[in-house]
């Protein structure tokens, strides 16, 4: 039972104790073996990605695949940064992504709070409508959305990308709502007795209890924006506003062929911002909620 308690309580277990080899037995050992085997499978393409990004073109196509590039082409990274304006694209993608995260986390959690904590007429229908908005394939709605923005005169500006963010995203609203539903209602009741209004309960009580989900939504929103090829492609048209997903396509050169090693180098560079965000986000992720503190 004592061991179980250490396993189950993420706040209390001192992580350094895991270093001791005698602990590696039974279920823990099995877990490690599974995770190692799985990690190998997951890492395989990335090892290849990094290796390919350092290869010459001839080396890239060599059969069987060489894992250690010969020669090691650090030059690929320099070329990507100097000749292909990767830094500009990263800058553009970065501010769009940060804007999305800030606005979307706020708005989506606000809307989700409304769905999770108030009983109002039409709520269930509206919630199903919210879910339904995620279910119509965008392939058939894209053109009419484009026409809407054209009629508004917004094409060529950032508005078609920035404005829809102000209304939250169905995915994140749904995610927040489910999380809020899982939060014990006692914590609101306690706050209410202290005279807190709806806004303050949301801001001072609910949000601080939601660190893990805030991290998750921040990351998914960042990624949604970071990986978005379509909207910047369709609505923006200047070289100076180009984003990373579009920039990576530049390595497919018609007639000349695909510059695979350069593309791979650019892909590695493009991985850095989301990986950094994810690793940093994890530091806040483990702060699970502790009801006792609220009571």
């Amino acid at each position: 039972m004592a061991q179980m308690s250490a396993r189950m309580s993420p706040v209390s277990a001192p992580s350094l104790r895991g270093w001791r080899i005698p602990r590696l037995k039974g279920r823990r050992l099995t877990a490690y073996i599974i995770l190692f085997a799985f990690s190998f499978l997951l890492i395989l393409p990335f090892a290849w990605l990094i290796s390919a990004s350092l290869k010459s073109e001839a080396d890239y196509f060599a059969v069987p695949t060489t894992w250690i590039p010969n020669p090691i082409m650090w030059q690929n990274y320099a070329d990507v940064l100097n000749e292909y304006n990767m830094l500009t694209y990263i800058g553009n993608s970065l501010w769009l992504a940060v804007y999305s995260v800030v606005v979307n986390v706020f708005v989506s959690s606000l809307v989700a709070y409304g769905f999770a904590r108030f009983r109002f007429r039409g709520r269930n229908i509206l919630f199903v409508v919210l879910l339904a908005t995620m279910m119509l394939p965008t392939q058939v709605t894209a053109i009419s959305l484009y026409r809407t923005f054209r009629n508004l005169g917004w094409i060529g500006s950032f508005l078609p990308i920035l404005v829809p963010r102000l209304f939250g995203s169905a995915f994140d609203i749904f995610l927040f709502r489910q999380y809020f539903l899982g939060l014990p209602r006692e914590i609101d009741e306690a706050a209410k007795l202290d005279g807190c209004g709806a806004w303050r309960i949301y801001w001072n009580i609910i949000l601080p209890q939601s660190a893990p989900i805030l991290v998750v939504v921040s990351i998914t929103t960042f990624l949604y924006s970071w990986r978005d090829l379509w909207n910047p492609l369709i609505y923006l048209s200047s070289e100076g506003t180009r984003t990373v997903p579009l920039g990576l396509l530049l390595f497919f050169v018609p007639g000349r062929g695909t510059l695979f090693p350069l593309l791979m180098a650019a892909a590695v560079i493009a991985l850095i911002p989301p990986v950094v965000l994810y690793v940093v986000g994890q530091r806040y992720f483990d702060r699970g909620i502790v009801v006792a503190e609220v009571r």
Partner: peptide, 8 residues
Amino acid sequence: AELLPWGA
């Protein structure tokens, strides 16, 4: 002018 990658 806008010079876009082929597929895009």
